[in-house]
Design a protein around this nucleic acid. Structure first.
Lengths: 189, 189
DNA sequence: CCCCGGACCATACGATCGTATGGTTGGCTT
DNA sequence: AAGCCAACCATACGATCGTATGGTCCGGGG
């Protein structure tokens, strides 16, 4: 059961998905959560702290979800496929997570504190992908594994971007097909 | 020679690169351009019109640049390579265009007018890539051409995102290597 | 029983925002 | 010379912003 702070963060995430960073204000968060301005201030001293906590929360949730799906797989190749699929908002219900990722990475381009957090998170993602790919393709050298993991991550980011911003051009079926095609070629001996 | 409106738009783009959409206000644009608030209002009636015009301007500039580099190539494969390289901010000097693209696509996720303009633009980009790829690989069926063009565009978007938000993890040399590797495999018979 | 600290609220302050209004140039046309 | 129009400016209005301040409520430990 989430505490009151977590409920506030979920409200922030909801507003972030709907209106982006520009649409977020302490007053709106308070109103949307049904509390007063002071309540928000009580849990998070400044707006920056509130936004940072909200982004850290979704980061943790996504990371935990990826870890779970990877551990549920029976082979490194299966785990790689699961993690890759988890990084692209294929279903419309996953669009929220994709929007949060997109507005966060755009903020990282112009806001240094956001950038440091994002870089650390995505560095870990690339390393995880490389680890799984190295286990699934023991014939590849370590340099090739790193580069192909980075290329895979770039494709995943691009698919996520298209899914979020252009769902018409990139419907779920197409995203899935492009992802599977790339993974098939990547995992072929 | 750019008129006063274009100078204002260039100022907007500069602020966009430095601070994103959140850092843009009529007053800041006016101050940064060395004119009054009323001057900005005279050329663009509202803030939305100003932002839309600024994004349309960079869109036109990028499109013209891509068209030029494609026409300068001597083969469809060369044109494809040129267009692909032009869509990724490889050099640090091109980072500005990448930042504008990233903040624009993030805004498209939460702002419908931005989304419609972005979708139209990127739809044209995918079609151009597919046309060049179809000419370079006549052995491919039209469906395969479309899908591989979309996968290439996703990779380019992901590389651009990483170049802008994580220049440490994705230095120019690595982005170029990943791009060339993908294009080599794509253009191989 | 007291009281104390965390959770929450009401309100206020100064700053900044987008936009509206009306006036002032300065060059060009007729 | 007269007038017109685009370009530009100074200022003002109401709204919203982030944050600070001081109070109220209430459940658990002394």
């Amino acid at each position: 059961m989430p505490g009151p702070s977590e409920e506030l963060l979920d409200v922030v995430v909801g507003l972030l998905v709907e209106h982006g960073f520009e649409g977020i204000s302490i007053r709106r968060v308070a109103a949307s959560a049904g509390v007063s301005i002071g309540a928000v201030q009580h849990h998070f001293p400044t707006k920056d702290a509130l936004l940072a906590a909200a982004m850290a929360r979704v980061d943790d949730q996504v990371g935990a979800q990826l870890l779970r799906s990877a551990q549920a797989a029976s082979s490194p190749a299966g785990a790689l496929r699961a993690v890759a699929a988890g990084l692209v908002p294929l279903e419309p219900a996953e669009r929220g997570a994709g929007v949060v990722w997109l507005v966060q990475v755009a903020r990282a381009a112009v806001h240094e504190p956001t950038a440091t957090a994002y870089r650390a998170s995505w560095q870990r993602v690339e390393e995880a992908l490389a680890r799984l790919l190295g286990a699934a393709r023991p014939d590849l050298g370590p340099g090739a594994v790193l580069d192909r993991a980075a290329a895979l991550l770039a494709l995943l980011d691009g698919l996520a971007t298209a899914r979020v911003a252009e769902p018409g051009r990139m419907p779920p079926s197409r995203a899935r097909r492009l992802l599977d095609h790339h993974l098939d070629a990547l995992l072929a001996p």
